[in-house]
């Protein structure tokens, strides 16, 4: 059982929805992003998605693209991203950390070496945007063998025929991408999302978390109400991008978390 599995068991027992927050590691610099990450559990975040910066984030909108550029410009690397996880683990051994990013930095590191280091650093799961089920042998299967969850994205284009393929080899939770598009673009509509979540839940016992297009506490509450939880990324990253102090960013996160937890 990973920390992710334990967290969902706990949330289910308490009858609460999950609030997942995404931040880009190293944005705008190492120290600031570490301070944000260390403050997330206290702001009500149940699961942390830690973005691994990449030069070519083809599924991300402008907000997260710019965050990645700021991080890389400040010298962020895969090693320093693992280091942020280690710093959180030194003070918090329960909040799950999911590393989210693109495959090339991991491939470049070497999959075997990366998995050993990620586990040691206290990473619990991986979301790798450009690894569909067709490429499971690359990282998904080795990651699960190494005891990490591999969380897959399901999207509005994942039809019933394809859904079983997406759910096979998925663990931890299913991340439903609420819109066709990039992060931070359109706004997720509960009426569109509800039947999709139901469609996925009919095929899996895993929690279904909805992300992309959730920007406000009200939106978080609405969407969390029809799923097992929500992810907010771009809206938080935009606050960091404005240069807001860490305390303000965490207050913003807390409003979102409270919204999701009202559901």
């Amino acid at each position: 059982m990973t920390r992710i599995d334990a967290k969902f068991a706990q949330l289910a027992a308490e009858g609460r929805k999950a609030f997942v927050a995404y931040v880009m590691a190293g944005d705008p610099d190492y120290d600031t992003s570490r301070d944000v990450v260390l403050g997330l559990p206290g702001a009500g975040v149940d699961i942390i998605e830690l973005g691994l910066p990449f030069t070519d984030p083809m599924a991300d909108g402008e907000t997260i693209q710019l965050a990645g550029q700021r991080a890389l410009a400040s010298g962020q690397t895969l090693e320093k991203t693992l280091q942020i996880a280690r710093e959180l683990r030194a003070v918090d051994d329960t909040t799950p950390i999911v590393m989210m990013g693109y495959y090339n930095p991991i491939y470049s590191r070497g999959v075997e070496r990366f998995l050993v280091e990620a586990r040691e650093a206290g990473i619990d799961g991986l979301i790798v945007v450009d690894l569909p089920p067709e490429e499971d042998s690359e990282l998904c299967l080795p990651a699960q063998a190494a005891g990490l969850n591999f969380i897959r994205l399901a999207t509005p284009t994942t039809d019933d025929a394809r859904l079983p393929k997406v759910l096979t080899n998925t663990s931890g939770f299913v991340y439903y991408v609420s819109i066709t598009g990039i992060t931070g673009a359109a706004t997720a509509q509960a009426a569109d999302v509800q039947p999709e979540v139901a469609r996925i839940k009919a095929k899996t016992d895993l929690p279904v978390i909805v992300g992309f297009g959730i920007k406000t506490p009200e939106g978080a509450e609405q969407i969390a109400g029809i799923a097992d939880g929500v992810v907010v990324g771009s809206a938080i990253v935009a606050e960091i991008g404005k240069g807001r102090p860490v305390a303000d960013v965490l207050a913003f996160v807390k409003d979102l978390a409270d919204g999701a937890h009202r559901a």
Binding site: D130, L131, P132, R162, V166
Partner: peptide, 10 residues
């Protein structure tokens, strides 16, 4: 190979 996001895969 086919290293694309799930939205594009179908």
């Amino acid at each position: 190979g086919r290293f694309v996001s799930e939205t594009l895969m179908p």
